[in-house]
Amino acid sequence: MNCIFYTACIASITLTAAQAGASTTIIDFNDGSAPGFSGNYKVTSGTDSTAAAPVIDGVRDETRYLAVPGTGTSGSAFLDVGALGGGSVLTRLNADWGSIDSYNTLTFYAGSTVVQTITGSMFPPANGDQSSASTNRNITLDFNRNLGITRVGFSSGQLALELDNLSVGTVPEPATWAMLLLGFTMVGAAARRRSKAVTA
Score class of each variant (00 low, 15 high):
residue 101 D to M: 11
residue 82 G to C: 11
residue 82 G to Y: 12
residue 184 F to V: 05
residue 98 G to L: 03
residue 74 S to E: 07
residue 188 G to I: 01
residue 198 V to Y: 10
residue 138 N to E: 15
residue 2 N to P: 07
residue 61 D to F: 04
residue 73 T to N: 11
residue 90 L to Y: 00
residue 51 A to Q: 08
residue 18 A to Y: 13
residue 41 Y to P: 00
residue 134 S to V: 11
residue 184 F to E: 05
residue 69 P to S: 06
residue 157 G to Q: 09
residue 171 V to T: 14
residue 110 A to K: 10
residue 79 L to G: 08
residue 141 L to C: 10
residue 186 M to S: 07
residue 15 L to I: 15
residue 180 L to F: 04
residue 98 G to T: 02
residue 119 T to H: 01
residue 10 I to Q: 08
residue 121 S to T: 09
residue 120 G to K: 04
residue 147 L to G: 02
residue 74 S to F: 05
residue 41 Y to F: 09
residue 125 P to N: 13
residue 58 G to M: 12
residue 16 T to N: 13
residue 121 S to N: 09
residue 109 Y to R: 08
residue 31 D to P: 00
residue 16 T to V: 15
residue 158 Q to P: 00
residue 39 G to H: 01
residue 116 Q to H: 10
residue 196 K to P: 03
residue 131 S to K: 08
residue 18 A to K: 13
residue 80 D to Q: 09
residue 34 A to Q: 04
residue 123 F to K: 03
residue 176 T to P: 00
residue 81 V to C: 11
residue 163 L to C: 06
residue 189 A to F: 09
residue 63 T to L: 10
residue 126 A to R: 11
residue 164 D to R: 09
residue 99 S to F: 02
residue 52 A to Q: 10
residue 16 T to M: 15
residue 65 Y to K: 08
residue 39 G to S: 03
residue 30 N to H: 06
residue 161 L to A: 07
residue 92 R to M: 05
residue 138 N to S: 15
residue 96 D to H: 06
residue 55 V to S: 05
residue 91 T to D: 00
residue 80 D to N: 13
residue 63 T to K: 15
residue 169 G to P: 09
residue 35 P to N: 06
residue 5 F to P: 00
residue 53 A to D: 10
residue 139 I to C: 14
residue 171 V to R: 10
residue 176 T to Q: 06
residue 171 V to A: 08
residue 98 G to P: 02
residue 54 P to K: 12
residue 43 V to C: 07
residue 189 A to L: 13
residue 152 V to R: 04
residue 187 V to M: 11
residue 22 A to G: 12
residue 102 S to K: 12
residue 79 L to M: 12
residue 54 P to D: 11
residue 120 G to F: 03
residue 85 G to S: 05
residue 169 G to W: 05
residue 121 S to E: 12
residue 98 G to R: 01
residue 178 A to H: 03
residue 65 Y to A: 04
residue 191 A to T: 12
residue 130 Q to N: 06
residue 198 V to G: 04
residue 19 Q to E: 14
residue 140 T to D: 14
residue 8 A to H: 10
residue 151 R to P: 03
residue 33 S to P: 01
residue 74 S to G: 03
residue 130 Q to T: 11
residue 23 S to Y: 08
residue 17 A to R: 14
residue 93 L to I: 05
residue 79 L to F: 07
residue 25 T to G: 02
residue 56 I to P: 01
residue 96 D to R: 01
residue 1 M to S: 15
residue 159 L to W: 09
residue 89 V to H: 01
residue 34 A to D: 02
residue 77 A to T: 08
residue 135 T to V: 10
residue 184 F to Q: 02
residue 165 N to A: 14
residue 14 T to P: 03
residue 199 T to S: 15
residue 183 G to W: 00
residue 176 T to N: 01
residue 14 T to K: 08
residue 52 A to W: 05
residue 94 N to F: 00
residue 128 G to Y: 05
residue 34 A to N: 05
residue 168 V to I: 15
residue 46 G to P: 15
residue 147 L to F: 07
residue 91 T to P: 01
residue 35 P to I: 08
residue 83 A to Q: 10
residue 134 S to Y: 10
residue 74 S to W: 03
residue 195 S to D: 14
residue 75 G to K: 04
residue 28 D to Q: 04
residue 186 M to K: 07
residue 26 I to Q: 01
residue 101 D to Q: 10
residue 32 G to D: 00
residue 124 P to W: 07
residue 76 S to E: 14
residue 103 Y to L: 11
residue 166 L to T: 05
residue 30 N to T: 05
residue 87 G to Q: 03
residue 189 A to D: 02
residue 172 P to V: 12
residue 123 F to R: 07
residue 13 I to S: 11
residue 15 L to Q: 15
residue 59 V to A: 10
residue 165 N to S: 14
